[in-house]
Amino acid sequence: MLEFSNVKFAYGERLVLNHFSAAVPRGQVTGLLGVNGSGKTTLLRLVAGVAAQQSGNILLDSVPLSSYSRSQRARKVSYLSQRAQPAWDISAAELTELGALPYPEWTKHERQSAVEQAMAQTDCLAFSQRKVTELSAGELQRVLLARLLVGHAEFILADEPTNGLDPRHQLDTMACFQQLAQQGRTVLVVLHDLALASQFCDHLIFLHQGKVHAAGPTAEVHTPRNLLDVFSI
C-alpha cells in the first residue's frame, strides 16, 4: 500500500500539491487523473525520489519513504517518466538493462534473464538488438516499459505510459499493469485516456488543484459529475 498524508509541494511560489492525502491499494491498478498541471507528475516524482519531499508523509507499506536509503528505494519503486528519452544510440536490450542498475550484485546471467523476461512481457524480444534510433515511438515506449519491469520493484509508477502507442499496444500495456497488480504489486498510473482508465483501473484518484477531488473504486468514482468537476466535460 502506498499512502499519502497531507503532502504539500510547491515550485517556488506556485503551490502544486496542497494537503494531498490518498491511499493507493496493493494488488490493484490505480489511475491518477486530472488536468494538465494538476500535480500528477509531481506526485510520482516525489515517490520516485526525483523531487525532495517538502511537507507531509509518504508511506510505503506503512514505512515512511524518507527512512529508505536511495538504493533501497530504487529497489522498491520503479518509475517511468514521461520525458525520458535515451541520449545514446544503444540497443533496445541495453536500454532495458538499465532497470538492473539498482541490483549491482546480480550476475551477468541473472541480469540477462531478467532483461529477457521483461522484454517478453512487453513484446520487445523481436527487436531487442535493434538500436533505439531505429525504433518507432511505440516500440521505444515498450522498451522503456520493459526497463520498468526488470527487477522486483513492488511499487510501479508510470507517467502516461500509453503515449505514442497504437491501440493494440495501449491495451497490451494496460493488461501488463493488471498482470503486475495481480502479482501483488502496487501500480499507480497517470492517464489521460478516460476510456482506458475505466476499463483497466481498479481504483481511481481524481486530482484537482493539488487536492483529491474523488478517490475510490473505479465503478464508484468514474461518474459524469466527477468528470464535469475535474475536466469540465
Binding site: 516524482r45 520516485a48 525520489g49 526525483v50 536511495r70 538504493s71 528505494r73 530504487a74 529497489r75 519503486v77 520503479s78 518509475y79 517518466s81 520525458r83 525520458a84 528519452q85 535515451p86 541520449a87 545514446w88 544503444i90 536500454l95 538499465l98 542498475l101 539498482p102 549491482p104 522503456l144 526497463r147
Partner: peptide, 20 residues
C-alpha cells in the same frame, strides 16, 4: 560508469535508479 549509464535516460531516471 554505472552513474553515466543511468544518465542515459536523464537525471530524473538516474535519481529514481538510486543515484545521488
Amino acid at each position: 560508469g554505472r552513474f553515466l549509464q543511468a544518465l542515459t535516460l536523464g537525471e530524473e531516471i538516474a535519481s529514481s535508479l538510486g543515484f545521488a
